[in-house]
Amino acid sequence: MNALERPLPRSDAWAANASHSTVCYQLQAEAEPDTLCRVLNLFALQFLTPHSVQVCQQDDWLDIEVAIGGLSWHRAEVIAQKMRNLVCVAQVSLENRARAELAVV
């Protein structure tokens, strides 16, 4: 699919007037061959492309960090909950990068 055929990003009907920001998901998941695909598929199903993805394996676990922009906090939380429902995921935390950057300044 090229850029002209790609559908427009889905709007968040539950938080249409909410501000959008960059969020960072931090996960700990089982180090299985399909784990990363399962996690990233939750974004792909909504036509979202992460800005960055970092993965580090430690023993039997993957430490995964995914940053993505243009989400309302409500939509980000819904995606985090879907991640928590994956059998291979042990832990998920969510951080609003815009707020974190303001706190540092």
Rank of each mutant, 00 (worst) to 15 (best):
L62M: 12
Q81D: 13
A29F: 05
P7I: 06
P7D: 08
A90I: 08
D60W: 05
R84L: 00
R38M: 06
C37E: 13
F47H: 14
M83F: 06
Q26M: 08
R97L: 14
R99D: 14
H74C: 05
D63M: 06
S93C: 03
E77F: 07
Q57D: 14
A31E: 01
T22A: 11
T35M: 00
I64Q: 00
G69R: 09
A29L: 01
Q81N: 03
D59H: 09
A80H: 14
E65N: 07
L71F: 01
H74Y: 04
V89Q: 00
Q28D: 04
L27R: 00
Q81M: 02
R84N: 08
P50M: 08
P9E: 05
W73L: 02
D59N: 11
E101G: 06
R84G: 01
W14T: 13
V55L: 07
A3L: 10
N96M: 04
A15H: 13
N85P: 04
Q54F: 01
Q28N: 13
L27P: 04
I79Y: 00
Q54K: 01
L45N: 05
M83D: 00
W61M: 10
L4M: 15
N85K: 10
V87A: 15
L36G: 03
V92D: 01
R6I: 15
P9K: 12
P9C: 07
E32D: 15
I68R: 01
W73K: 01
A67D: 13
A13R: 09
H74L: 07
H20K: 15
L27Q: 04
Q91A: 09
D63I: 11
N2Q: 09
E65Y: 05
F47T: 15
L94Q: 00
V53T: 04
Q26W: 02
A90V: 07
H74I: 12
S21P: 02
Q46H: 13
L86A: 02
W61A: 09
R84M: 03
A31P: 14
S72K: 03
V53Q: 02
I68D: 01
S19P: 09
W14M: 09
E30K: 02
I68Q: 11
L102N: 12
D60P: 01
V66T: 00
T22L: 13
Y25S: 00
A18T: 02
V92G: 00
L45W: 04
E32L: 12
H51C: 13
A15R: 03
F47A: 14
N41A: 08
K82Y: 10
Q91I: 05
N96C: 15
L48A: 08
D60G: 02
W14V: 13
N85F: 11
A31K: 12
E32P: 04
A18Q: 08
P33Y: 04
H51D: 14
C37P: 14
L36E: 00
A67T: 15
S72M: 01
F47E: 11
T22P: 06
E95D: 08
Q57W: 05
E30M: 06
S21R: 09
A15G: 08
A100I: 02
E95P: 03
V104W: 15
